[in-house]
Design a protein around this nucleic acid. Sequence first.
RNA 1: GCCCAGGUGGUGAAAUUGGUAGACACGCUAGCUUCAGGUGCUAGUGCUCGCAAGGGCGUGGAGGUUCAAGUCCUCUCCUGGGCACCA
Length: 816
Amino acid sequence: MSQEYTPQTLEVALQADWAKTGRFAVQPDNAREKFYCLAMFPYPSGKLHMGHVRNYTIADVIARYQRMQGKNVLQPMGWDAFGLPAENAAIANKVAPAAWTRENIDHMRAQLQRLGYAYDWDREIATCDPQYYQWEQWFFTQLFERGLVYKKMATVNWDPVDQTVLANEQVIDGRGWRSGALIERREIPQWFIRITAYAEELLEGLDTLEGWPEAVRIMQRNWIGKSRGVELAFGLESPIADLDRIEVYTTRPDTLFGVTYISLAAEHPITLALAEQNPELTEFVAACKQTSVAEADMAQAEKLGMDTGLRATHPLTGEAIPVWVANYVLMDYGSGAVMAVPAHDERDWEFARKYSLPMKTVICDAEGHPADIADSAYTEHGVLTGSAEFDGCHFEAAFEGIAAQLGAKQMGRTTTQFRLRDWGVSRQRYWGTPIPMLNLEDGRDIPIPADRLPSLLPEDVAMDGVTSPIKADPEWRKFELEGQPCERETDTFDTFVQSSWYYARFTCPHYTDGMIDSAQANYWLPVDQYVGGIEHAILHLLYSRFFHKLMRDAGLVDSDEPFERLLTQGMVLKDGAKMSKSKGNTVDPQALIDRYGADTVRLFSMFAAPPEQSLEWSDSGVEGAHRFIKRLWRLIHDFGSDEGASAAESLTSEQKTLRRKIHETIAKVSDDYGRRQTFNTAVAAIMELCNDLGRHPGETPEDRSVISEGLHAVLQMLWPITPHLSEHLWRQLTGEAFVESHWPALDESALSRDELEIVVQVNGKVRGKILVPASADRTEIEALAKDQENVRRFLADATIRKVIVVPQKLVNIVAQ
RNA sequence: GCCCAGGUGGUGAAAUUGGUAGACACGCUAGCUUCAGGUGCUAGUGCUCGCAAGGGCGUGGAGGUUCAAGUCCUCUCCUGGGCACCA
């Protein structure tokens, strides 16, 4: 009766059954505890890659484990369907982004279904559907009314040949990826959402997110970057560009006496005014603009500067301080000007060295001497020197004293600043949500009225590769409001806007009366478990937290935070590198599913590494996972049906040992799935149990009873990972349908041991092992340890100084 | 450049609270079964000395704390992620 393992037929049949019976469709149910499990939805790029498989398997294992705990589990799936790749594909393949996207969705949906994920497909969302983005447009107009939206000039990468704006990704070594032209920074008007109004709350909220990895919380905290400092001004003798002073911000006012120059951004109004009379400076400013807007590029670019000849007055000493223009000072941050203290700031030190600018030490080192700055800046806090009446002050006193003196002179004040900048949401692209704003003839911007939404994106378009079809089409732009002609905004939203609230829409995807059905949302939210790549640690997760608070303040949801617990999974690598087409090291999950079935692919993904770590791909590892499945298949078939095996009365010591292994495994796997989320160690433990079950003779009814108990537990514990295999074999073994809401019960009494093995060390090195009765006390253990044969040899002519006994574990005898 | 992770056998990894380093699996070696094997089973497998019993060494590198360090501290090297228009 040894039947062959045929995953292709077995899995597809079960999947059809799940779909037909609506097995994973859910509704609110107040009788049961809810559990909302969500994996970050994919961009529909064409087909699934291994990163998706890993991501969705992790989430599915958690969702199914929670189902086995009897919870009402929501696990939805959808598509982050707007974005740049669709435009690129449209140009390359002469197909409209909409058609390309929807084809990809159909293909990827089928792939996900073939992997057997327990999704409620009735809730599927695609962000490119007007039914979705209309509410995003509506919400934006609400934010506008609340004063949380504004328009200002902001910098973009400009390709002067293609006459288009480029994403940072499209700028390679400072050149446009298609034209090869040197790109330049250019300022254009763009829409912003005031995330900075929520900076304090976003920062404080991090402390409540105990279910988040500490690394993510730290990264967000640093990103928000709250600092206490001083805003101060250096005076100008005569106004330039209507400014009579240069404003700077510093967190180190204690180094104010060490300022030897000031640096302005290339876009600073004073720079621009000075450049008008100075051709050399004009040229330098143009050169400064030839880097991408990416911070990484700017931080690594060679530091360039030029003396403007202008001098500003030090607010405390009255000295004349040279004013420079430098390419590392950014107009978008703070005031676009910084005071430079080369002795106590790394970047200023490098710049000053390069241009032979003076340095002035004003902080003492730990020994109380003026710090040595010959080889690098001294950036520690310390006692002041060379700072007039502040000499001898420590950081705190100097900070307060200098701030007070600046305040008295009306030249400065203490402030709190955030590194976080407002969220620019304008994109000069076609394939996105049209920004629902109108430009009136008098120049004012107003929102499109709610009853005229959605502002529909035309889908039947041709892409020429340079101009957005809605920018190229004058007809689309035309709009009439109360008889007045006006123009639609032709920019679209950043795709992060869609992904900032989809988790909430999943609770009520078909709701037509508003953005969110609060009754549904408040039942399901917050998401109990969110799973996604670590690469989203800052942007996506911060924007979502921000949007949640915006929705809360609009009365749509009750909770303060969207995601209770977060699991950030590592990447899938091959040959130590991220899989990518350009490297030619991709692995197509479809080929693996076709060859081994979904359960093998799922099992390997879970077994190969813990979820937070990167996973090194291995073909032979997949083979190994498949072999384990076949072994288990054979084990169950060889065992036959369990013909109502009853709990045995008295067991032999071998049977007791096997039963203890079964229950130790249940305890470990429960902990690994639930608390630790280390699925690889759970699989290893189940494999160990299977090895023991296979080795155990099945001669007596008692033997068969214990083995049967173990096989039941194995199938139940594997269900979250290999659901098809488990359901199929369960029926073989028991003759009944698999009941998913039963997690195997732990029998604590089966865990007890009569004897323990204890390690004996001499001076920290293992010299022997002893078996002691579980009831043995300290003195007995110590005596047994000293008596151990090998231990005695090492103690022969030594004096025992100390004996350390760690209960249940080891004895360390310290001897000389 | 800045912020955050990670580095353990030939390979993927385990070691959960400072307490036996290498569980589980891959690979490899030997044997058995079968002998058409991309099959199955058994044993061995960190390096090293030894016939063996047993010993020495060993978690990127250098120091340190401790009876005891993969785990804690300091410095350092390498790899990966993020840096606001890839998603």
